[in-house]
Design a protein around this nucleic acid. Structure first.
Lengths: 349, 349
DNA sequence: TTGTATGCGTTATCAA
DNA sequence: TTGATAACGCATACAA
């Protein structure tokens, strides 16, 4: 007896009845509204937890027009890069009581549009996008016409107005090439992702620029471009090693690619760095624990997510012009690099 | 001119006006309701994409009482274990057009309750929980009183009615101990997580049971229990190695712990498997690429997520009794194990 | 300082 | 086969 609708969760109405006030008053108490007596506030608060009241976020959102949620679209959440970014986003969102809604696109550009639409139907207040492919015209047009605030992570989509977080791949790659050349390497290979996504373009461009600046040619077939996968990394590394005149140093431009490369080097018993110097992408357990430890181009991945969320929250709050945040890269030297030709320098472990 | 409320997204009303029918009819078309002329259906469909109409999921949910979303509560999404599970959940959810809402508890039991409450306010239809601590009384009481369908991942919470996905740690650990003993190891150490969480309890129990079954004592100090972190793994490994009579074989019961252990073995130049045989947890890049490759107790992590989502969807659909799904473990033998005392067997790489 | 009443965009009930 | 309309739970303009 007493409560009539025992089945469903208590609402504002139930709390109001229990406290002997109106729903408006309860609402004011919940939202910290003005003009509420301390006496009434306490009364209502008591009723709320007597009934175990939990505000109905959907109803509130329908009324206010904001969901306090942001969508994160990602090609594969199981990828350490993206899950670390997700952590960064979520950590930055929680203090403002925003929620992250995750949508996995499975690296499929068509599906990508679907999941974005799905998020929009749920009326997320903003979107953070780690796009699988920034060249799809359908996606580009769709995003260009979008009102919802957007943050692009290391992606450039023509005609789309969005905040961006860009990783400075060029600096890391330039440093790596310069270091290897200083050590006497004139035959440096590169394995990286396709041009359909910014990192692939940037890494390749920086690699070529660094050689051009040094007035050094890149031997034919030394740049391998393909999927950001272990399989491609392995295949490309094997192909490179099989060349009549293989590279004496290699840059693996992508974390998954790196794993494939390491697997091949290990399987073929290639001695690193004696036979091949190696610079890989991203400071991970795998690169650190490989023997020898692998020199890497590293960046603060967590910060990418944090920064993205910060940009988005900022825009949701105050609006303003589109902004671009830049994440630096650093070359971390470890045992996988040695001089070529001349006398070897001191070996790191 | 024409549309009055150009600012906000078009609603059912706008579509109805544009098509010259009632909102009820539009709603029927959207939901594939019965009794709609093909003529009208086409008319409405045309109006919908003329206006770029997107259904308002929140309003619909408010009306229907279901959000078609499930919350996944996780102690750290950046952890590969949980991000892989998340992928499994999401993949199983998407075909049914359910969405995953992620909530990171930061391994903090108090915060854990907060994020669950937050998810509930958003009226998720169900919850998948990778709890950081299953012993918290507050959390236990809260969950016990919950109406929302629950799936516990490798956790046991007293008094809580929920579907469960349980990993069969015991089988893997038993196989590992048996294999090591067959190879002559009588001094096997274990580093694993605390009893506050099922895996820690199970792994320890299986380790002790396996020894008891063999009538073999476990040397004092050979079982180290602590945080599931790299730091603890490293610290415990160092302590074990420093003992006057250190173990000849070691089981690292946790992926993070494993990384810490590997780091120490490498730093101290411990020769694996000559000086120490090693069995670690989870088949990862790090364990595979370590030299030598590390034997592991593996399980299909992705399947944990998939199974959890399947159980939940099932319950959301048909209800029925609580169910328990079991995920097997397997011992994968690689080069990190060798016989002790007798003649070494054939070495794997 | 508090209460009443309206509407957010839907679905579902009932009449037509 | 279609249309009018009442909720869903809340926030807020306005009245008191």
């Amino acid at each position: 007896m007493g409560r009539t609708r025992a089945a469903s969760a208590p609402g504002l109405k139930d709390v109001a009845a229990h406290a002997g006030v109106s729903v408006a008053t309860v609402s004011r108490v919940i939202n910290g509204g003005p003009y509420v007596t301390e006496r009434v506030r306490a009364l209502v608060a008591a009723s709320m937890d007597a009934l175990g009241y939990e505000p109905h976020a959907l109803a509130r959102s329908l009324r206010t027009g904001e969901t306090r949620s942001v969508g994160y679209v990602v090609s594969d959440i199981a990828n350490a890069l993206f899950s670390t970014i997700a952590r960064g986003i979520d950590d930055a969102l929680q203090p403002q009581s925003y929620t992250m809604v995750l949508a996995n696109s499975r690296s499929d550009p068509a599906h990508e549009l679907d999941v974005i639409r799905h998020l929009l139907r749920r009326r997320v207040d903003g979107l953070v996008l780690s796009l699988a492919d920034e060249t799809s015209p359908a996606l580009r047009d769709f995003l260009a016409g979008l009102r919802t605030p957007l943050v692009l992570l290391d992606r450039e989509v023509e005609g789309v107005l969005a905040d961006q977080v860009l990783v400075d791949h060029a600096a890391g790659v330039a440093a790596a090439v310069a270091h290897l050349r200083d050590l006497g390497h004139t035959r440096v290979g590169l394995i990286t992702g396709e041009a359909s996504t910014r990192p692939g373009r940037e890494i390749r461009r920086a690699f070529e620029d660094a050689h051009a600046a040094a007035g050094a040619p890149i031997p034919g077939g030394f740049v391998r471009v393909g999927a950001l996968s272990e399989a491609f990394g392995a295949q490309a590394a094997a192909a490179l090693l099989q060349m009549p005149e293989p590279p004496t140093a290699l840059i693996a431009g992508g974390a998954q690619i790196t794993v494939g490369v390491l697997r091949v080097l290990r399987r073929q018993g290639v001695r690193v760095p004696e036979e091949l110097s190696l610079v890989a992408y991203d400071d991970t357990d795998a690169t650190e624990l490989f023997s020898p430890s692998v020199s890497v181009i590293a960046r603060d991945i967590y910060a990418i997510g944090q920064t993205a969320a910060a940009l988005l929250l900022d825009r949701l709050g105050s609006g303003g012009a589109q902004r671009v945040a830049r994440i630096p890269t650093a070359l971390i030297l470890r045992g996988s690099i040695a001089a070529w030709g001349g006398s070897p320098g001191p070996l790191l472990t």
